[in-house]
């Protein structure tokens, strides 16, 4: 097939993926409350957004939970991966398969199962249970981002550090972690994004008064979503895009440096 046709096809699919996003962004500047009509350009929703306590509080919970859960999951998950890496085949497969369940399990089943646990243990649902739920579904993503990097690593480097008198913990921190850092960063970013976007699991594991943005949006959907939410999402999307651009630029120059060093060696 010709290159032009291939390009056309890819761009049609991209159009399909971005059409609703563009609509959402455009309508965040719409002067009318209703999504059916366009009645002129305004920044009104962007201003009102910062006066809406409910939305700001949900934003606060969303970001706090995402940061805390992804940091904790990255620490537990990285050490878990290093430990699991040394397992014998049978126990390795067992732990790997159980850890894989939250990754492919239906979100609603994960959410319901955690809710049953909290009820069973008599824990009141709220911020704490929400955090635990997010850490739980984040850890496996960190483990599965880090494990492949461990396989790519030369284990002799770790043994050399030990032979030179480093304690196991020092060798891990100074030798292994730097070697697998790309996996750790990928895992962290994955965990952070998943937490930020999660609705279903949060819906079942949170308590009264503790809502993240997804829960607010879901409860609004029946009455019609307030354009303030569109404005907030447009802002968040813009922040992500800027971050992405900066990281890309930085990692591009890092890669360049790394390749150069490799060549010189």
């Amino acid at each position: 097939m010709s290159k032009v046709l291939k390009k056309l096809y890819i761009w049609l699919i991209i159009l399909f993926l971005y059409a609703p996003i563009v609509v959402l962004m455009v309508y965040s500047f719409n002067d009318s409350r209703s999504r059916a009509t366009w009645s002129g350009f305004t920044f009104r929703w962007y201003i009102e957004l910062f006066q809406d306590r409910m939305i700001l509080q949900a934003l606060y919970y969303t970001i706090t939970i995402a940061l805390l859960s992804s940091v904790i999951a990255t620490i537990i998950g990285t050490f878990a991966a290093i430990g699991i890496f040394g397992y014998k085949k049978l126990s390795f497969n067992l732990v790997r398969n159980i850890s894989y369940i939250p990754v492919i399990n239906a979100d609603i089943v994960t959410g319901v199962s955690l809710m049953l646990l909290f009820v069973f243990l008599g824990i009141n649902q709220g911020f704490f249970t929400l955090l635990i739920a997010h850490i739980t579904f984040n850890i496996p993503y960190v483990i599965f981002s880090v494990l492949p990097k461990l396989y790519q690593m030369d284990v002799h480097v770790y043994e050399a550090a030990m032979d030179l008198g480093a304690s196991p913990l020092t060798s891990i921190l100074k030798v292994v972690i730097p070697e697998i850092r790309h996996g750790i960063i990928t895992g962290f970013l994955l965990a952070f994004t998943l937490s930020l976007d999660d609705f279903v699991i949060s819906f079942f594991t949170t308590g009264p008064g503790v809502n993240n943005l997804s829960i607010i949006i879901y409860s609004m959907a029946r009455r019609g979503i307030n354009p303030k939410i569109n404005a907030l999402s447009t802002l968040m999307f813009a922040v992500v895009m800027i971050l992405l651009f900066v990281i890309n630029k930085k990692s591009a120059s890092n890669n360049h440096l790394e390749k150069k060093v490799r060549r010189e060696i």
């Binding site: 996003i21 994004t193 930020l196 976007d197 949006i217 999402s233």
Partner: peptide
């Protein structure tokens, strides 16, 4: 193909109503 996932999926789905 990954970028759209950074916008809340409920909102993206909801935006289809407008379309």
């Amino acid at each position: 193909f990954v970028i759209p996932m950074w916008m809340n999926f409920l909102l993206r789905t909801y935006a289809w109503l407008t379309l």
